[in-house]
Amino acid sequence: MNRRIKNTLITLAFPVLMFLIMEAVCLIAAGRHVIDFSTNLDLVNLVRNTGIACAITYALSFNLTSGRLDLSLGAQRLAGTVIGSNIALALGLSGVWLLLFSLTFGLVFGLVVGLVFVWARVPPMVLGIGMGLILESVVYVTSGGVGLNLFGVQGITILSEAYFTILVVAILLVVVLYLVAYTKFGYQMRAIQGSQRIAQNSGINIFRHAVLCYTFAGGLVGVAGILDAAYKTQMAVTSGNASSGPVVSNTFPMFLGIFLGRWSNQAVGILVATLTLRIFAMGLAKLQLSEAMSNVVNMFLYLAFLVYLANENYFKKRKAWADRLVEVQEKKSKLGIPVEA
């Protein structure tokens, strides 16, 4: 079989398998389908939630794959969305303009965090906490503590429409795919992911690259933020870095996406992983589990996946070690060296 077709089938197998598993579980346990095709409501929800989560996961992947966990990403999402959208609303703009303003302000806040990172050389997690707290406070002050309220605002319905979400995700996919796979930026990213020191010694400006990563990530979470706020009609201010919650919860699709990227590439892998996990979440919702139980199931699956990732070569390594022992013993016996039992 053509390798490309094989890889495509393996990649698509994940959401399909997840759907089949959850469909069986939901039918057996709750007597209902994981996706009710009698209306388009479940599909619209799936598309919307996948789109929002996918944008956040792409944002996470820019820095996390290079070893930088940016804990201010949630605050950038909050700041980009609330400040950008409030300015757009103050200018009498609505609809797609909110998206563009959130994107722009997300890029700006990402750029600011990136520049501070390069200037201060503080470990990314520490910087992320500090910048997160600062940005949350900025949002609080600039919005008078209200955040973003879109309830009753005309023209925002388009941002919650499935076709619009698909369009946005398609554009994001193409942009991220192009950036990561076909540009100098992408090649540098892979070099830095391999070894930051070697990448720097070979002439890559790792600091400029980091600033670009932070900037792109900021823009992406800005997009995710406004899509989410448009559906919920509001985005409340937070404090104490509580804004990082929705971002950190997307580390699972990011790791799964990188894993799936083996059969496609990182951008496609993340989209498929996000879709897979949204189907899983939808199944849990259909099972009507309590919030606590849903969290337990989600986190257990996440942990199990991380354990698998950490040990996926365990049996290969054991076999290689056993083969090596046999080889050594044969060599010793050939050389007449006594072999220990």
């Binding site: 609080y140 503590g145 209200v146 309220n149 409340a236 201010v237």
Partner: peptide
Amino acid sequence: QNVTSDTE
């Protein structure tokens, strides 16, 4: 406990 529009 919450900061919303009615908090203002």
